[in-house]
């Protein structure tokens, strides 16, 4: 009996050491890949979100083009969890040889919220592809204009429910910023996924929701839900009658910004090769068609590495202030 227990303790301690290795930096020998013959083998793109979601589809659409441009196999690896933090962690543990990229939509938010321990010192953006546009959606039977909505909120402060997916993510930030900009008192309800949220608005369980144009397309075409206000500077061709936040005097045009990242200590020449390849992918016809099919072309998405790094820095600072207010 005693012997059995001793044996067991030894095993468990070995195991614990290993568990620790899962978390810590598994000293990845930084054998820098040679830029001259890059890429010479398969590349892996880590996606921090589930298969089939917006960021996953984006990564796969770009990878399709990149494979032809770079002439290598590129594997998309979904590592769901923590709004992309798990994928960042795993990428950080991989060697910085340019063969591990990350596709992420929430980098600036998770960094601002503190759930992502790696900042711009550890990861560098390669390029931003999409700057998605939000709108405030309601059931067509409930409201027909933003004025009606504002009136309803003023009559029942804190009672009007607005759905969004996830918590402390872009959706909740958007609703919070809307409350501040328009001086409204809303009741944000975090939903599990877009499906549940759409059903909530259609079934009359939620008064409104924030979502992008792609996922809501079929319901909007059908006329069962309508956008009240678009979170951008300019009106949208498909919905010419819907006012924008800027028109209403609200300074609120943020959206999900989907981009590729890589470890900062990667050979700069490799980053440049990737950046150029991505520019080419961005301009390809197939990618353009994918954007149009999914209503992602409403705003020009492209930003190169240096520009997007600057923007990310600004965003992190801005979101940090909001996070502090949310979490106080």
């Amino acid at each position: 009996m005693k012997r059995k227990i001793n044996y067991f303790i030894v095993l468990i301690s070995i195991f614990t050491i290993f568990l620790a290795a899962c978390n810590g930096d598994s000293d990845a020998s930084s054998e820098s890949g040679e830029a001259s013959n890059y890429p010479s083998r398969n590349i892996e793109v880590l996606v921090g979100h589930g298969a089939g979601g917006g960021t996953d589809l984006f990564a796969r659409a770009v990878v399709n083009e990149l494979e032809d441009i770079l002439d290598v196999n590129i594997n998309v690896v979904n590592q769901e969890g923590g709004a992309g933090v798990v994928a960042l962690q795993n990428a950080y543990n991989a060697p910085s040889d340019g063969y591990t990229l990350i596709a992420d939509a929430a980098f600036s938010i998770t960094t601002a919220a503190g759930t992502n321990a790696y900042g711009l010192d550890d990861f560098t953006p390669i390029a931003r592809f999409q700057n998605d546009t939000y709108a405030l959606w309601v059931n067509a039977e409930d409201f027909s204009s933003i004025e009606e909505f504002i009136e309803a909120v003023e009559e029942n402060p804190g009672q009007v429910t607005v759905g969004g997916t996830g918590s402390l993510g872009m959706d909740e930030m958007t609703v919070f910023m809307l409350e501040q900009a328009a001086d409204m008192d809303l009741n944000f309800v975090p939903m599990e996924g877009a499906g549940e949220m759409h059903a909530g608005v259609l079934g009359g369980h939620l008064d409104a929701m924030v979502d992008e144009f792609g996922p809501t397309k079929s319901l909007a075409d059908d006329g069962s839900i309508v956008p009240l206000v678009v979170f951008s500077e300019e009106r949208i061709d498909e919905f010419p009658d819907v006012p924008t936040t800027v028109e209403l005097g609200w300074d609120l045009t943020d959206g999900n910004e989907r981009a590729f990242y890589i470890k900062s200590d990667t050979d700069p020449e490799i980053i440049e090769i990737l950046e150029n390849a991505m520019k080419e992918a961005y301009e390809s016809e197939d990618y353009k068609r994918y954007e149009e099919d999914n209503y992602l072309h409403l705003r020009d998405g492209w930003l190169n590495s240096a520009d997007f790094e600057e923007r990310t820095e600004e965003l992190i600072e801005k979101y940090q202030v909001i996070m502090d207010e949310l979490q106080q």
Binding site: K4, Y7, F8, L11, I14, F15, F18, A21, C22
Partner: peptide, 16 residues
């Protein structure tokens, strides 16, 4: 039972 438990553990360590 201990042998098979530990071999599974070692195997999991091994793939890492």
């Amino acid at each position: 039972s201990l042998i098979s438990m530990s071999s599974i553990m070692l195997y999991a360590l091994g793939i890492f």
